[in-house]
Amino acid sequence: MKRFSCARCGARVFFENVVCEACQAQLGFIPDELTMGAFDAGPAPNGAWVRLSAVAPHLHRRCAHHSPPLGCNWMVRADDVDPLCVSCRTTEVFPALDKPENGAHWSRIEAAKRRMTYGLLSLGLPVPNQKVDPLDGVAFHFLEQTNPQAKVLTGHDRGRITLNIAEADDAHREHVRTRLGEPYRTLLGHFRHEIGHYYWDRLIAHTPWQDRFRALFGDERADYREALQRHYAGPLTDWADAFISVYASSHPWEDWAECWAHYLHVWDGLETASAWGLRLDGAVPNLPPVHARAMPADAPDFKHRVVADWLPISQFSNAMSRSMGAHDAYPFVMADRVLEKLDFIHEAIAAGVRGELAMNFGRGALTAPQLALEQACS
């Protein structure tokens, strides 16, 4: 992620901040610009805030979820008919708030979703909600398991992503991670994995890229239920030769989603390291220092950049985690086959953003007048 500063005083601020600790300016993230704005919360038309910047082209107001328990710090253009920000408006079902812990869980979940959404927007990918694009939009259902006999499973189904809110509980998530023998399990990882399934439908399904996908990942028409049953009965022993994780070896769809999540990990990690000016002297013996570089969306040498930049940075990150007595931050090894899959995802995203790949969006999208009518009636 990029570094941010207060537009009033220049102090460093962070993605989650709602106020500048140095000058007390009100802060809000502006998704259209992928930047943090500083605002005067004084009176303005329609509850809008005046931005403390001479170049600001629009008035903004706070997302309707700015109050506890969520505390969303994203902004909405004052002329937008939707009261929610671009991230919050993709949430369709949220947990009952009669339990105090549910509010805390929901807050952590939405914070992770905002970070994921930032990554998608920074790549130039559309993130439509199902109100404006009922056929091809995305909707999140955050559910609590109240009946032991009716499990709430995290997963994706035709644009609807379900997450068990217990995943926001660190103790629960660590218990599941240990029981399943996973090296890594986080809320952000869940979101990046599940949104990968969504973008497979948007970028690959029924497009000319489907044949290349099958050559790399396998044929997704293989029975999904049977594939998972075989996986849980006894996963492949040589999975590391071609897959980023053991779960990726279960089915081509899961391989894609796991690789998609790791692509976002690498993308965000390189941008963060570059923004902080990270330089590693002696990262690779007998070679020049490694200067962290953000990955351009159209970088033609993706595989080389991963090997030259990301692998040393991830090794450094793991070393720092061990110094703090924590799990490795990036406990994964990328085989050549995995690098080819990540490179394919990089190509597909870039082609879609450039318009060279006809992405599957908007087939049932509402027009602006239709959306305004929907909002007025809801």
Rank of each mutant, 00 (worst) to 15 (best):
S317C: 15
H265N: 14
R337C: 07
V338D: 00
A275P: 07
R61L: 09
M324W: 14
I244V: 15
R305H: 06
A372E: 15
A48F: 01
E340C: 02
L228W: 03
P369E: 14
T154F: 04
A41C: 07
P43V: 09
I109R: 00
A168N: 08
S87V: 06
F29E: 00
A292C: 06
V76C: 00
A7R: 15
A205K: 13
E144N: 05
H265Y: 13
M36V: 13
A150G: 04
I345P: 00
A64W: 04
D201E: 09
G119I: 00
E374C: 11
M1T: 09
H346K: 04
P235Y: 05
N164T: 05
G42D: 03
Q26C: 09
F217N: 02
F4V: 02
T207N: 03
R62E: 09
D223E: 06
L125D: 04
L339T: 07
A273C: 13
S250H: 04
A297Y: 07
F316K: 12
H206Q: 14
G103W: 10
S67F: 12
T207L: 03
P43I: 10
F213G: 00
P208R: 01
N164E: 02
A64Q: 10
T367E: 13
D336Y: 04
H231M: 02
G159M: 00
F243L: 01
A319S: 13
A248G: 12
P148Q: 12
C377E: 11
M75E: 09
W267Q: 10
G189V: 00
D301H: 11
E92I: 03
T146D: 10
D255Q: 09
C377R: 15
D301L: 09
W276P: 07
W49A: 12
S321K: 05
D223M: 05
D343F: 06
